[in-house]
Amino acid sequence: MARWGMVIDLNRCTACQGCVVACHQENNVPPSNAKLAGERRSIRWIDMMPMYEGEYPHTSVSLLPMMCQHCEHPPCIKVCPVGATFFSESEGIVGQVYPRCIGCRYCTNACPYTVRQFNWYEPEVPDSYRDGTNPDVSVRYKGVVEKCTFCNHRLMEARDAASAEGRDLLPGEYVPACVEACPTKAMAFGDLENPEAEVSKLARSKRAFRLMEDLGTEPKVYYLREGEGK
């Protein structure tokens, strides 16, 4: 049993968007184009969300990397009529089975964090990109919903290797692509069930907050507030 979660230290994040591109590359997210962007239909598994406060000249902005929060009580899975999205009891990750998805988009509407993306069009991928496809991740097509999966393919590969060698998962053996890419090491990732893990300690920090906590979704992505203070 594990509860995989993430802590993002906003003091360390510099909004370089390395996480965004690393995620898209790892997960075979198709390249967007001007038309999709104009319709706000680009697929982004992780995105920088600006939160403005104050009026000029006392403006302040926070930039939060936003991805699927992998809630403990996800609203999205409750509305899926076909079981295409599910909550993994053993890992705490909200996953997707693309061929089951019928494209009704109930889940996309139900998600309060608006992190689910629907493939409105057939993804246009040049032939030359094919060889660069990551074989560990499904390639999606028109009519299905996709979202961040905490790179659970990496988790499965790691668990496979661990069980073949008759051992447990080592700390740091499983990190999603975004966490790996972050150049300022702003993202910590691990098992929130393990009280000694770095994520657990950071999640208990006074600076820690989650988004829309009052909704009761119990998201597993924590943010550490910017500014001074321990």
Binding site: S88, E89, S90, E91, G95, Q96, V97, T149, N152, M156
Partner: peptide, 10 residues
């Protein structure tokens, strides 16, 4: 053995 979807579907 596990019947958790995540183990076979990614």
């Amino acid at each position: 053995a596990t019947t958790d979807c995540i183990h076979c579907h990614r």
